[in-house]
Amino acid sequence: MKLEIRLCGFGGQGLILASKLLSQAAIIDGKIATQYQTYGAQVRGGTVKGDVVISDKRIDHPTVIKPDMLVIMSQDAYKKYGNFVKDDGIIITDPFYVKGIEREHIEVPFYETVKEELHSTLPLNMMIISFLAKYTNTVSEESIKKAVLEKIPPHTVEINTKALEIGAEFGEKFKK
């Protein structure tokens, strides 16, 4: 098994942290993972991407060339990275941020959901990784939770845990 995931969007959405947490969770599960990011000109606001590779065995070439899963969280990121995905790869977009996609893709309302259910968009990234873990069946829910709890400040535990639960629900729902 080798799965390459790319999260792209704009700075401030927490996607780079998300890519790190997803990799860390995979490692807690006993897998091999790499993580690598590209920053735009500015850390806040510019286009960013966080790449994750999860595998059962050693990962050689260190970065993602064409991902198996491409999560797009901004129109600019779509323009920049939308064409780079494996032939049988899956594109996931948030309809709140990305519109007018011609290729086959799955729309997951991450933004609207966290906003409505949690009255905050901060845990958006948490919902995404939890979704991905469930949807791809590669990372366990416990490990995601463990990786997240190691990194976040105590007062955000409740809201982030909620976001993880919602993400997992959605992951299950969108799985065919």
Partner: peptide, 9 residues
């Protein structure tokens, strides 16, 4: 840059 910025096990 990649070896410096990438993370892995």
């Amino acid at each position: 840059e990649v070896i410096g910025h990438m993370s892995e096990n």
